[in-house]
């Protein structure tokens, strides 16, 4: 497995940090090396929020990334900020519920994901971020389905345990 360097970015409140956390948890459960680096500070109060997840078989040096293997943009400003960091052959995931227009980039595989629309079809718009996680998982295979489920069971414990099923379902809402 090569090293995955994935940036997930959007508004504060869209759940981008949780996308990264579940991915990081799942990778750890597979015994892989992983770092999860969030943005913090004023952007968490209404501006842009992002996190960088690195998953590797090897020890991870820099937790900061200037060459991403994948970028998931949940809103327009995030797309502008991060799309140029994608390496040739990398993946760009665009939340088309918010971002309109054609944003394809040469040498990069663009995946349009209607996070809100697909979540609405599941009658739960709160899982829009999980729809994006599902798209990333389906395209990059960064972690396995089993470990994602295990990560969710760990994260949604106690009273939230009932949320695992709907979140798992959301992973497959997008069909590339």
């Amino acid at each position: 497995m090569s090293t995955h360097k994935i940036i997930i970015a959007g508004f504060g409140g869209q759940g981008v940090l949780l996308i990264g956390q579940l991915m990081a948890y799942a990778a750890m459960m597979e015994g892989k090396e992983v770092t999860w680096m969030p943005s913090y500070g004023p952007e968490m109060r209404g501006g842009t929020a992002n996190c960088t997840v690195i998953v590797s078989e090897k020890k991870i040096a820099s937790p900061l990334v200037t060459q991403a293997t994948a970028v998931a943009a949940m809103n327009g400003p995030s797309l502008e900020k991060f799309k140029d960091l994608i390496v040739p052959g990398g993946d760009l995931f665009i939340n088309t519920s918010i971002i309109t227009g054609d944003h394809g980039k040469e040498g990069v595989n663009t995946h349009n994901v209607d996070c809100m629309g697909l979540a609405a079809e599941l009658e739960n718009t709160k899982v829009a971020n999980m729809v994006m996680l599902g798209a990333i998982y389906q395209v990059t295979s960064v972690v396995s389905e089993d470990s994602l489920r295990a990560a969710m069971e760990k994260t949604f414990s106690g009273g939230k345990a009932k949320l695992v099923d709907i979140n798992m379902k959301a992973l497959y809402a997008w069909k590339g």
Partner: peptide
């Protein structure tokens, strides 16, 4: 530093 404080690692 802020990086070590804020990031997550196993």
């Amino acid at each position: 530093d802020g990086m070590l404080g804020q990031m997550m690692e196993p």
